[in-house]
Design a binder for these strands. Sequence first.
DNA 1: CGCATTTTTGATATAGGTCAAGAGGCGTGG
DNA 2: CCACGCCTCTTGACCTATATCAAAAATGCG
Lengths: 236, 236
Amino acid sequence: MIKSVSQEDAWKGEANCKICSIRDTVLFAGLEEKDFEHIHKPIEQLPLQPGDALYHAGSKADRLFTIRSGLVKLVQYLPDGTQRIVRLLRATDVTGMEALLGGEYQHDAIIMQTTEVCVLPIDVVQRLSKENVKLHHELMKRWQRALSDADLWITQLSTGSAKQRVARLLIKLVCDEDNHCELFNREDMGAILGITTETASRTVAEFKRKGLLREMRPNQYVADTDKLQEVAEDLV
Amino acid sequence: MIKSVSQEDAWKGEANCKICSIRDTVLFAGLEEKDFEHIHKPIEQLPLQPGDALYHAGSKADRLFTIRSGLVKLVQYLPDGTQRIVRLLRATDVTGMEALLGGEYQHDAIIMQTTEVCVLPIDVVQRLSKENVKLHHELMKRWQRALSDADLWITQLSTGSAKQRVARLLIKLVCDEDNHCELFNREDMGAILGITTETASRTVAEFKRKGLLREMRPNQYVADTDKLQEVAEDLV
DNA sequence: CGCATTTTTGATATAGGTCAAGAGGCGTGG
DNA sequence: CCACGCCTCTTGACCTATATCAAAAATGCG
């Protein structure tokens, strides 16, 4: 089992939230000068590698994480041991909100692509959220966002044929206006879509053949979003 | 389209939260004497029939609902018009929390079985939640609960074979220790599980034949939860 | 360069979708 | 009270999509 990051072995990159480069989109967006006085413990910034775990299901939830960059998967396991990925996290997403209720983490949070996170001790967040209405509102927004994501996961990624699901996933993965995107391994694609690795592989291969995906460099694709959209809606 | 309940045509059952019969499990559990002074508008209690809508996707979210009894489905629609049910709500569940963020409702909330709800105007909840820490905590708990439910929906009801999914759904529907349960129509079962009406029907019929379900009276079943559990985990 | 892992591809079996028709319930109106 | 029409559930026949099992090809890593 992968060890999750601990306060000890982590690089103690002390974050300066005041000058944070993504601050206006981030949980602490609404903080004011006086609020920062309450942050005694430094907020750590961690660089993490694929395969690392942010936290594990069942362990005590005592920290909240803001994803600064990269890609993280939230994984749950079925009784028979098969895994299902229930959410993906990217820049500005917050995870580990279970900590606000003093329970245990509900998922394994595993790094998929090199990721930078801020680690927020839960007592700091709790104290600040009592005093700062904006932060409190921000927290609720994140909660709502997670819930919408979960709903989308059900309607988009767990409904319809394998082709439709893969197409919808690819559309989600397109990051810039050039329709550039980066895939991940077929097993993870399967665990996201509730299909087998083989079906994921075959479908991606078919999309490549039909030109809906063009591989420019290893794992650097350009997607034909219009055509993919047609597949997603089964207009083919 | 079904009209959603409005303040006007609703039965103005004015609730008395202080003596509410399910108060200790409900959102307002932590309210104190002084808090009630803030509830000027009466909290309505509505009795609703199958097919009625609590609210519709896209309409302004201005009320929060506590389910007192009955069964409600949250429905979303795919571009091609097919519907997918993303959550079920029962006694003590809260829905419409989008209202706290001043947005629009994300789903159609449709009554499946005769249901009683309390309607909480959002401004009342917001004011109370600022002053009462327990209520605030309760709200976060509901949010977390909704999120866990969504995760379960993905792992349990949208993963594995049709038989497994139906079995898992039936287990969820068992209400008392006698393994008594009540199903709903096959179309809804399909929309919950991401399978067709016919497959839902065939699977239920098969379970009946094999004795995993015994129909005592019309739509009053007794479930063999042990056997269903085996099917759910594919140990057959 | 060689081993381990992942991806692709193939062959086959089967679950589940699709289309269609019959059966049972239920309400409405004659 | 019965007959008719409407719905939902069930069942059947068929066919396709996807799972399964297996092996080859490609990729990455020490």
